[in-house]
Write a protein that binds this DNA or RNA. Structure first.
Length: 496
RNA sequence: GCUCCGAUAGUGUAGCACGGCCAAUCAUGUCAGACUCUCACUCUGACGACUGGGGUUCAAAUCCCCAUCGGAGCACCA
């Protein structure tokens, strides 16, 4: 068999190994993909899926990856100036540096040009209907009287729109589709509307009175950029049908498309950009990198590695199912990366002081990492701090181990008292005694910011040296040492 | 109301385009155990799913129909 049909054997083997992650692409010609956010807030975990998957594909197939800022709504979804750089910065951090960056608000004239051509072809018209008026007609598959206006008149109205002769709401430019299309969402959609609010970018400001809507801007851009494959949310599936009209009129070739479902994250639930913006300005959150937020900036600050996020997103694959996922998988991925390199430290939250009767001051030695030899040194007197949560579980007479220090026996609960009973580790093992961590009372003040609140306590001296690194606070979890202020170490919780 | 998607274990995913190899993959999770001077890591084992009903067929997770459930669009938002 092997001799007769080696290719069959190869095929069998291949089938045995299921295709993990992103499905293979079947594209002819060069792969050009784009990720097109509205920079009205910072990139979130959701955005990272788009960034990662697009860049992953273009890397794999030697294609081109473009970031396009769809910032054509200066009013309702007003762009945020800082967000442009945030996107670029987070892309780079994710290992998805774009080959090209395009800003839609720089290219309004190009859209005007296409609009003019469409009007000349009789494929677009200026409509003066009020919204409800048009909707009423549309719902019964009827055209409004503007639809049949002559081309010359339309061109003239279009010029007036652009030059600002009309008020907002007074006129729009519609693309002719099929007014009787069975899907009401397709019928003569709006391509441009009048917005007089200046754009936040100073390069643009009040230059334009007329702004394209996403379907039009995206349609033109994807052609201009030579996009060959679009991956977009299922919610934008109808866009394709609408945009295809423009492509047909202009005789362009529509890119291939794929869709994915909505992603919801258990830990964060439904949070809207605008809602977050408000909560931040009200002080509910400390900023866009507050550890409680689902932004990439927050994950970065918490010490999540980009490789972990990439892997996580790639393994989600591409499905049209709406998914609701838990960050546990991301954390597990990150833990695997971080655990072998993170130094260990003691951190005692909600500390309780304990005087150990009969103990001698000494310098405790504990390994930086259980699988490596280097030791850290912790000088300690006769008093130690231990966690309130450990104290709660103590019983009088209980013998336990202060990790890397010595053994003690609890002689009283309230007030808490204990005495030194030796240093022998073998006894602890034999008795299966509990081992708890501790900190010297004159240790380093530490504050940990985590998604479920703040922890204050005392850690070991030496944490300052771990600035910007992820360390493990034993029996607490992984943490990124963020900064040192007023002799207090500030850490961000990564995960357990 | 009209229209378009989708549905595999707690979660996510493989398999579905070409029906049999699927008593259904992998990861994560949970539980149990081993290892360990951490409730981390590692290792071992267990748990756990084809939404329902019809049909086609020798044979259906895979094809068809209906139902149910979920999501989305019908915006001068993206």
């Amino acid at each position: 068999m092997e001799r007769l049909a080696p290719e069959l054997i190869a095929e069998l083997k291949e089938k045995k190994e299921p295709d993990k992650g992103l499905p293979p692409l079947n594209i002819k010609g060069r792969l050009v993909m784009r990720f097109a956010p509205n920079p009205n807030g910072p990139p979130t975990i959701g955005s990272s899926r788009g960034i990662i998957v697009n860049s992953e594909y273009t890397k794999k197939y030697g294609g081109k990856f473009i970031i396009r800022f769809d910032d054509t709504d200066p009013a309702t979804k007003r762009p945020m100036l800082e967000a442009y750089d945030w996107y670029l910065d987070d892309c780079e951090w994710l290992g998805a540096k774009p080959d090209e960056v395009v800003i839609a608000s720089d290219r309004i004239l190009k859209y005007y040009e296409v609009a003019r051509q469409l009007i000349e072809k009789g494929s677009a018209y200026v409509c003066f209907c009020e919204q409800e008026e048009f909707k009423a007609l549309k719902d019964v598959k009827k055209a409004c009287l503007h639809r049949d206006e002559e081309i010359g008149k339309n061109l003239e109205s279009w010029k007036k729109m652009i030059s600002g002769e009309f008020k907002e709401q007074e006129a729009v430019l519609r693309i002719k589709t099929d007014i009787a299309h069975k899907d009401p969402a397709i019928r003569d959609w709006v391509a441009f509307r009048i917005i007089k609010t200046p754009h936040p970018r100073h390069e643009v400001g009040g230059k334009y009175n007329v702004w394209p809507l996403l379907d039009f801007e995206g349609a033109v851009e994807d052609h201009l950029l030579g996009t060959t494959l679009i991956i977009r949310g299922k919610d934008l599936a109808d866009s394709e049908i609408r945009q295809r009209y423009v492509y047909k009129y202009m005789d362009w070739k529509y890119p291939e498309t794929m869709h994915w479902g909505r992603v919801q994250i258990h830990e964060f639930g439904k949070l809207s950009t605008s809602g977050l913006k408000k909560a931040i300005s009200e002080g509910t959150y400390t900023g866009w990198d507050d550890p409680r937020l689902p932004t990439i900036r927050a994950l970065r600050r918490r010490g999540i590695r980009s490789e972990a996020l990439r892997k996580f997103m790639v393994e989600l694959g591409l499905g049209e199912t709406d998914i609701s996922l838990s960050l546990d998988t991301l954390y597990a991925e990150n833990r695997k990366i971080v655990d072998p390199v993170a130094n260990r430290y003691f951190f005692v939250w909600a500390p309780v002081e304990l005087e150990v009767e009969g103990a001698e001051p000494k310098v405790a030695k504990a390994p930086f990492h259980p699988s490596r030899g280097e030791m850290r040194e912790i000088p300690v007197g006769t008093k130690v701090l231990i966690c309130q949560s450990d104290v709660d579980n103590l019983k009088e007479g209980e013998r336990l181990r202060l990790k890397d220090l010595y053994n003690i026996q609890v002689t009283g609960i309230s007030p808490l008292t204990a005495r030194f009973i030796g240093t022998d580790m073998d006894i602890v093992k034999k008795e299966k005694g509990r081992i708890i961590h501790w900190a010297p009372p004159d240790g380093q003040k530490v504050r940990v910011l985590s998604p479920d609140g703040e922890y204050s306590g005392i850690g070991e001296r030496g944490l300052e040296k771990e600035l910007d690194k992820v360390v493990q606070f034993e029996r607490f979890g992984f943490v990124r040492i963020d900064s040192v202020r007023d002799d207090e170490v500030l850490a961000y919780f990564t995960h357990k």
